[in-house]
Amino acid sequence: MTLPINEALILSCILFSIGVLGVVVRRNIIYVLMCIEIMMNAAGLAFVAASARHGSLDGQAFFLFVLPVAAAEVAIGLAIALLIFQRYKTLDLWVVARTKEA
């Protein structure tokens, strides 16, 4: 029985690229944050695939380290999003960039 390691790596690449694309093209901060999550998840997937390939559990352990990073990032990112919405009444990053603070 062979594990689909190469295929899993390619899948992780595809997911990562989609995430990057989302970060670049979306203007809503919530979407941007979600796309960052996608990128992190793709990286995690690559870790797990690498773990399977080398027959070592280290990769899986590192996936577990990706998790708290993602969680902390979401906590702070969403707090910032809320703050932005409070102050500018919008989540559009372009609009925020246009608005000069006094």
Partner: peptide, 13 residues
């Protein structure tokens, strides 16, 4: 440096 996060992200990309 136009202040848009997406422009920065694109430059990073």
């Amino acid at each position: 440096q136009n202040g848009r996060v997406s422009r920065y992200a694109m430059v990073m990309l």
